[in-house]
Computed example of a mutant assay.
Amino acid sequence: MTERGDLLDFPGADELIAAGDVAPPAPEAVTAARTALAQAVRRETTPVVVPLRGRAVPRRRRFLVAAAAVAVITAGAVAYPALDLGGSPAATASAAQFLDEMAGVAADSPAAATSPYWKVHMETVNQDDGNATTTTYIDRAGRVWTVDANGTVHGPGKGSKTKKWSVGGKWLTWPALDKLPTGQKALTALFPRDAESRRHQVTALLEDSPASPALRATLFRILADTPGVKLIGDVKDSKGRSGVAFEIRWSTIGFSTGPGKDVKYRMTDRYVVDPDTGFLLETTHENHGKNGSAARYTWLELGPADRVG
């Protein structure tokens, strides 16, 4: 009884007991509550014994956390206020909270400071290429090696292109990424002012670049301030791996077939993140047009490597 009393020693415990069996909360409500909880944990410094996602829950925050949990469980869902970012529909607070939490996770991830190569093992499914699995290694000069399924290595040939990532109007190799500022204001200023173009460049860096932990953290914070981002919640990717998804809907003009014949495409981009590492597991791009199609990019392995193959 003493242990039970300790566990239920928080404001709202009586309401939780009285609620009895209720319908489960919406996935996005649970994800948002977990994210808010993890953020509170990261900000505190006085730990107790109870762990949460590998971290310690601070005693002083326990009452606020418990009250939030009661709200989620008894109400079944939570309405989160929108962030006023101006212009397009704002990112919901839950999406911003999740992306800010991923910034903290990314900042704590190991760096690839001494590794000579960056390995990208991915599966691509799209209308043009069908289904393809590729393994590439990128060195710090941007040269690319590919490895076949049978282990055959193909080195960069004469005149071969280098791997670069777009930041604003520049294309940067690995060493140049390491020189980017990691302050949010300074880094944001290097990307396009248009929120949609900026989002495309930021997510491309998060997908497969060897960005440092500090840079990845700032990229997530920039996404947290991006209009229109919606948190989907807990999902499984195409390989059955658990992750948390967020998405954004946007429009673009397709190829013109003549005067007045421009086609407007409605798109949905979904990103699945591993909440334990902050790395992307999968990206999908869905076209909602008349002859709509979808493309999927699944990151099977991503990280530093000491050798090719």
Rank of each mutant, 00 (worst) to 15 (best):
E3G: 02
G5D: 11
G5M: 03
L7R: 14
L7G: 01
D9M: 02
P11W: 05
L16A: 10
I17Q: 11
G20F: 12
V22P: 05
P25W: 12
A26Y: 03
A29K: 05
V30Y: 11
T31F: 11
R34V: 02
R42L: 00
E44A: 14
T45N: 11
V48Y: 04
V48P: 01
P51V: 07
P51T: 07
L52M: 04
V57S: 08
R59H: 08
R62S: 07
F63S: 10
A68M: 12
I73T: 08
T74E: 09
A75R: 13
G76C: 02
A77W: 10
P81G: 15
A82V: 15
A90F: 04
A91I: 09
A96H: 15
A96R: 15
L99A: 12
M102P: 06
G104N: 14
G104E: 12
P110H: 05
T114L: 09
P116M: 08
K119M: 07
K119R: 15
M122D: 12
T124L: 10
Q127F: 07
D128K: 13
D128I: 00
N131A: 09
A132C: 06
T135Q: 06
T135F: 01
Y137V: 00
R140D: 03
R143N: 13
V144C: 02
T146S: 08
N150D: 14
G151Q: 03
T152D: 07
V153H: 01
H154I: 01
P156N: 01
P156L: 02
G157H: 03
K158Y: 06
K158M: 02
K158T: 07
G159T: 06
G159V: 03
S160M: 02
K164H: 06
W165Q: 04
W165S: 05
S166W: 02
G169K: 15
T173E: 04
W174L: 07
P175M: 09
P175E: 14
P175L: 07
A176L: 08
L177N: 09
K179Y: 00
L180T: 08
L187G: 09
T188R: 13
T188K: 11
A189N: 11
L190W: 14
L190M: 14
P192M: 12
P192N: 13
R193Y: 04
R193Q: 12
A195G: 11
A195R: 08
H200I: 14
A204I: 00
L205P: 14
L206S: 14
S209Q: 14
P210L: 09
P213K: 15
A214L: 05
T218C: 11
F220E: 09
A224D: 15
D225F: 06
P227C: 12
K230N: 08
K239I: 00
K239Q: 13
G243A: 10
R249Y: 01
R249C: 02
I253G: 00
I253E: 13
S256P: 06
G260I: 02
K264N: 10
D274M: 04
T277R: 14
L281C: 07
T284H: 04
H285R: 10
H288Q: 09
G289I: 03
G289T: 11
N291F: 06
A294P: 01
A294Y: 00
A295P: 01
T298Q: 02
W299Y: 04
L300H: 06
E301R: 11
L302W: 04
L302H: 10
G303L: 05
P304F: 01
P304V: 00
R307D: 04
V308T: 03
G309S: 00
